[in-house]
Design a protein around this nucleic acid. Sequence first.
RNA 1: GCGAGAGUGGCGGAAUUGGUAGACGCACUGGCCUUAGGAGCCAGCGGACUAGCGCCGUAGGGGUUCGAGUCCCCUCUCUCGCACCA
Length: 810
Amino acid sequence: MARYDQAAVEAKWRAKWVERGTDRLDLDRVAKPFYNLMMFPYPSAEGLHVGNVFAFVGSDIQGRYHRLLGYDVLEPMGFDAFGMHSENFALKHGRHPAEMVPKNIDNFRENQLKKIGLMLDWSRQVDTTSPEYYRWTQWMFVTLLKNGYAYKKKAPVNWCPGCKTVLAAEQVIDGECERCSSVVTKKDMEQWYFRTTAFAQELLEELDHIDWSERTKTAQRNWIGRSQGAEVTFRVENGPDFKVFTTRPDTLYGATYMVFSPEHPLLDEITRPEKRADLADYREKAARLSEVDRQAENRDKTGVFTGALAVNPVNGDKIPIWAADYVLMGYGTGAIMAVPAHDQRDFDFAVKFNLPIRQVVSPDGQISDPPAEAYSGEGRLVNSGPFDGLPAKEEGGPAITNKLKEQGLAEFKINYRLRDWCVSRQRYWGPPIPVIYCDQCGLVPVPEKDLPVVLPYLEDYKPDGSGFSPLRRDEAFFHATCPTCGGPATRETDVSDNFLCSAWYFYRYPSTEFSDRPFDPIRTKKWLPVDLYVGGNEHAVLHLLYSRWLCKALNQCGFIDFNEPYKRFVAHGMIVRDGAKMSKSRGNVLNPDEYINAFGADAFRMYLMFMGAYLEGGDFREGGVKAMKSFLDRLWTAILPEDGQQLPETGLQEAETSYWLHSTIKAVTADLARFSYNTAIARLMELINHLTKNQVKSRVISEAVIKMLAPLAPHVAEEMWELLGHSGTVFNGGWPAWDEAATLRTTVEYVIQINGKVRGKLELPAGLEEAAIEPQVLANPAVARWLEGQTMVKKIYVPDKLVNLVVKPT
RNA sequence: GCGAGAGUGGCGGAAUUGGUAGACGCACUGGCCUUAGGAGCCAGCGGACUAGCGCCGUAGGGGUUCGAGUCCCCUCUCUCGCACCA
């Protein structure tokens, strides 16, 4: 069988696309803009991972498909090259990121990305490490600072001893550093934060109105973590007031003790002198615990009594105040009322320290004493004075809250689990935070005209664990002049989290030619928000959340007129190999280049898309890519004219072939729209099988097949398109239309069931009435046999599909 | 524990609204072709058995229905997210 030379064909079209400018777009002169975005990679020294290829190809198919549908598709690419990934790699191999990164980018682009047939407009590339780019990253910082969305505070932060820097909560995975897997510890440090919590409610609510993969939305909802309840004011006996947050104000009568987080400032004031030594001791121990230790302790409760008593505002009970690390300073007010009867954590604590347990909610009106575990279900209030008998959660809570509210002792309150984004990093390889400290003027943002604050080249860029960035060691960088008063000043030496670089990159692509603004208002109006964003779900609460937040901030500051950056986000699946995750330690990492060299990018793309449902991922098996190349060879043979021959203009006289063609077009169209690439490919295979078996060839069929193949296997599609005599690109050729009438069968195969079991099949003209079918069914010998000695009970008739006869013995 | 998703041949995976389970492909088996083939072509390929015009079969158990992979209830397993968040 004829085989085409994939290396030659693909090289030819790579060159032709550049030469013809096929993938370049005049952004101002388009009728139907479609912004097709894929998550830009960090250019690792190891090169492009097969997971990247999978992600990009799935996105590229959408771009190419939309182009065939007639859209003007913007499909840009860039490099997320700042950050600890690059820096850690450089450190480990004794190299310098400033020298390593450009080489990596070059390798990614020239040797890898350009060989997988992506419809990328390279004239719009962004590189987050170039001063022209990070100038505007710094501008974002300054803008956020000026508008009150950035601030500095001293607080316990996540410290990675491996990377020697602080991390955002989102970058701590199971108590470990997302980058280096070191166990993260707590440190009290002054850091820069972005006020992500300012938009907690909007970030949550708007999830209901955007077209995103459900699992991504779920991850964000969990992360934002809305809790509805009340903030209640308690009093320390002979001492100050303090507030607690509770989601169960209905259980206020069941509060038998109070717990403060060990870091709670009020503890210093209220702890009785004889308990101070205990508290100091406990605080020290708690501070030493890492996140992992806290979790590994398996929730075994610890704590100390402060000697102080609190007064319960609902009944005047005096209850002891404890300090315990199961209460976190960062959530709510850092203090809680403990209701051991109805909260398992409080219950465990009460049992351990022998504190009273008082039931105030009963599922059945009975009072069970003593309970074996906390009951947090529905029920009616008991032991709750005037509120006894009320359904606890839905009526009791509001009633008690309202009563206290009248006395100014409570208010309804919603709390979010989301924390402000800690953005400063004590590292080298990032955009310096553009702030100057002046003895006279205080904290001064670097004026826009002075941006970028250029990252100096440091020979020794190792983080030193001092709590300061290595930039602090560069005297020339550190000392500055105050932009306001001209006096001596110093620079902020921390760099910003690399997630700030990626939170805005998609605004830049359409505006890369403007050097005096981060994004042009007219371009932005035309091209944003992004129409389709395809990427990995691992960024659900990182990049995707940060960029949504930044969008809201930019909107509030008046720079953009939309509130959500991506109209649609689709989370692709993950590729495994022979059922196991690919990882360096397993030694089963796949090198895409090998397969591309052996079988071609088209076959590789096709196989990646065929392995499984794109949204669920797939299992890479040896041999699949080769099989896909032979499919492309078969397709080539099946639809191209043989030497010296012409294709007949139409070969659709046969109803069967016409049916196959039109229903394939219809189905493939639907498949591409819902990312079912695997079934789209399967349908193309079926069509090719039909054509081969029946030796049908025609221009109409071939052109339609090529167009359907084009998004999946662009190089070979272009080659075949040219062989059919076309001079332009197939991607300007339009998507094939189908004739709905041709997708309908003139005869249909009825399934005949007796009592729901298939007993026969019957070929009949389509569209028959029940009355016309019945005699033929009954006359069918295969059916008649099953009806002997039976009485008909019921007949079910599904047009053009099935007849089910329900019978019983006579 | 909470939330989301999933469980179908030897394998990857298909199956609009409930309507022929296993499309498509891999692997395997037999045959053809070939000097040769990690090539190509044809055919077979869920299971058991007493070998059928029959029976069983979509994690397990129950239910709804003329009819269930699909809907409902219970159980089990796996993956992902969150997790001492009051």
